[in-house]
Deep mutational scan, measured.
Amino acid sequence: VSFKITLTSDPRLPYKVLSVPESTPFTAVLKFAAEEFKVPAATSAIITNDGIGINPAQTAGNVFLKHGSELRII
């Protein structure tokens, strides 16, 4: 599955597209996205474009099915 993750704390709204296997734990996606944007993973969260928080204790495939591919990291 592929996710387009936007960094909301930067006024330029940079984004990265990450492709991972469906079975990947979403905690790993969060950690990798945080490292890519050089923000601390421990204090970061991934939310939907509607501002709904995503529980990272599920697979990337589940997140994709529930929330789609466009996400934000805060």
Rank of each mutant, 00 (worst) to 15 (best):
T43H: 11
G53T: 14
G61T: 05
A60W: 00
I47L: 13
S2W: 03
S19Y: 07
L65F: 07
E70L: 06
F37E: 01
A45P: 03
S2Y: 06
L13T: 08
P40H: 05
K4L: 03
L30C: 15
A45L: 04
T27S: 06
V20Y: 15
H67C: 09
K66E: 14
I54T: 03
I52R: 12
I47T: 15
A42S: 09
I54D: 02
T59F: 05
D50Y: 04
A34P: 01
I74E: 15
F3E: 00
K16E: 08
L13R: 10
H67L: 03
V20D: 02
T48C: 08
A41D: 04
L7D: 08
Q58S: 09
V63S: 00
S2P: 03
V29C: 03
E35L: 07
D50M: 06
R72Q: 15
I47E: 15
E36W: 06
A41C: 05
F3Q: 00
G51N: 10
I52L: 09
N62W: 07
I74L: 04
S69Y: 05
A42H: 05
H67I: 02
F3C: 01
H67W: 05
I46D: 02
I46H: 02
S2V: 06
A60N: 01
I5Y: 01
G51E: 06
T8S: 14
T59Q: 09
F64T: 03
F3L: 03
S23T: 10
L7Y: 12
I52Q: 13
K38S: 09
I46K: 01
L71Q: 02
T6P: 02
I54W: 00
T6A: 10
G61A: 07
A42G: 05
T48R: 05
A60S: 09
G61C: 07
L30I: 12
A42T: 08
A57N: 12
K66L: 11
I73T: 02
L65N: 13
I46E: 02
G53Y: 13
E36V: 06
D10F: 04
F3I: 00
P40E: 12
R72T: 06
E35R: 09
R12S: 12
E35F: 08
K16W: 04
G51R: 03
I54L: 02
V17E: 15
K4Y: 04
A28F: 11
K38F: 07
I46S: 02
E22D: 04
D50G: 09
D50T: 08
T59E: 10
A57C: 09
K16H: 13
S69R: 11
A41G: 03
N62D: 10
I47V: 15
E35V: 08
A33W: 02
V1N: 01
A41P: 12
D50S: 10
I52G: 10
D10L: 03
A57R: 13
T48D: 14
K4H: 07
V20H: 01
I46G: 01
T24A: 07
V17Q: 15
V29P: 00
K66W: 04
S2R: 08
P56F: 08
V63F: 03
T59A: 06
T6I: 04
T6N: 05
P40W: 01
V63P: 00
D50L: 05
T6C: 06
D10Y: 04
K38C: 11
P56T: 14
A45S: 13
P25N: 14
S69N: 04
A42Y: 03
